[in-house]
Design a protein around this nucleic acid. Structure first.
Lengths: 256, 256
DNA sequence: CGCGCGCCTTGATCCGGGTCAAAAGGCTAG
DNA sequence: CTAGCCTTTTGACCCGGATCAAGGCGCGCG
């Protein structure tokens, strides 16, 4: 497994930020505050990349961390055999650039054209050494990233495609919703192939499940990149409960 | 998704420990050194738990971090519908007790009877605040844990059961091997069901794949808890390459 | 010593997702 | 407007893993 020296990383751990109880009460502690962003401004420079462009490659020397101002990116990993897997999608205000041993851990590519703030590593390191609050914030992000990966594992551990897709849609909804609101409309800037690579499914299957959920009146897809949750109850049942009553393969009307 | 407030954790991030290049050259930086262990000794107390016993439960208030002295544990998560998933296995010298918002993130249970050093959180926090080197070490572990989860995602993204199992065996081998040596014998203290829950497969499938790999002379299983890699080349091909030439479903002799 | 209970294995069947293939829609450039 | 490419959709078929079920082994306990 790539970039993985020796027998190492199998441990659930608690570092300083994990230890403390609920910190800044209520606030979304995994995002930078406007104030913190301001403190980063001096070392940040604006960069723009086009749809499909690669921000940096897995294994390349890590030179900067990026704060996303606009657009959507994806984290891609090549398997030894050449197939790809998508580890995650990143949206505005997310920070990308995880490195290990000074090398980027995965390739990051633009799903849509994007604008980012580039923070060179040496300057950032200096800043973090002086600003422990900011440092804490960055660690918080690492923690949440870990939790996200674990949730991803949970989803992939389930075979059924409709559950995987429903969970993915729910995740996208959570990301797009301001403060945990349940939006009915979901934006999907990524392609069916991207979704498939994230969920361990083929694009064909992704498309078929979309069609199935649509026929069953659970969701509506005006176009491939927009989804509306029509039947919240049944949608939730699929995403969360993994319940037996699942979407029939080809039937149209789901029995009440 | 459990314990997951709002729209938060989607970000690849770099915190202080990630930023710096190769640190202590050569040393396994994700394990505590004897010296560091010594510094932890004053606040640690020895505890012993029996096979099957639960160390702590997901969602419970985090009171301590544990350093494994002997035995094997597993990290289990309950899905909303009651099915379980295993996020990872932990071996001696691993540290368990990841918490978020002061609550344990997953349930940890003993695969075999185990002996651990218990480090109460308040004391540990105090210690880490004074000992930045130790603190650094803990963060390193969080980083590696994240990488491990990503590798897990990569494995689960592949449908084929024999690849998943081969990767799992390879991972177990790496963990048991001292300093990256390629052992031929692998210890599997966990049950077939455990392996299945880790790989997103049923116990029956796990057993069948074991049988298939054995018939193909790729591995040998003197008993269910011990594996010997017989044909390193073909084993590696399955685990790493995801190559087309895979183990035939029922054929005995693999054509040269 | 023998019974019973887990765990593991093996078998038979079914079904969902992968695969191969083709056609339709949408966007851009000419 | 049209040609060409890429993405998406849909279809047909096949295969591998889930499921249901039964049988074997090992170990602890009565």
């Amino acid at each position: 497994m790539p970039g993985h020296r020796g027998a190492s990383p199998r441990l659930a751990i608690a570092a300083r930020p994990f230890l403390s109880g609920p910190a800044t009460d209520g606030a979304r502690r995994d995002l930078l505050t406007a104030q913190e962003r301001e403190r980063l401004a001096p070392i940040a420079s604006l960069v723009r990349i086009e749809r499909g462009a690669i921000l940096f490659r897995q294994g390349a020397e890590a030179t900067a961390i990026y704060d996303i101002a606009g657009g959507v990116l994806k984290s891609v990993t090549l398997r030894p055999d050449g197939t790809r897997a998508i580890l995650g999608f990143f949206f505005p205000q997310d920070i990308v650039g995880l490195a290990e041993d000074g090398r980027y851990v995965s390739t990051v590519q633009a799903v849509s054209s994007a604008v980012l703030y580039r923070m060179p590593l040496p300057a950032l390191e200096r800043l973090l050494r002086r600003d422990s609050e900011l440092d804490h914030q960055f660690l918080m992000k690492a923690c949440h990233e870990l939790r996200a990966a674990q949730l991803h594992v949970l989803t992939l551990g389930i075979a059924r495609a409709d559950i995987r897709l429903a969970r993915f849609l729910d995740l996208m909804r959570q990301i797009q919703a301001p403060e945990g609101a349940r939006l009915a409309f979901i934006d999907l800037p990524m392609s069916r192939a991207d979704i498939g690579e994230y969920l361990g499914l083929t694009p064909e299957t992704v498309s078929r499940v979309f069609a199935r959920l649509q026929r069953a009146q659970i969701i509506a897809c005006p176009d491939p990149h927009h989804v509306r949750i029509v039947d919240e109850a049944r949608f939730h049942a699929i995403a969360q409960e993994e319940a037996r009553p699942r979407v029939p393969p080809s039937r149209l009307s789901a029995a009440g």
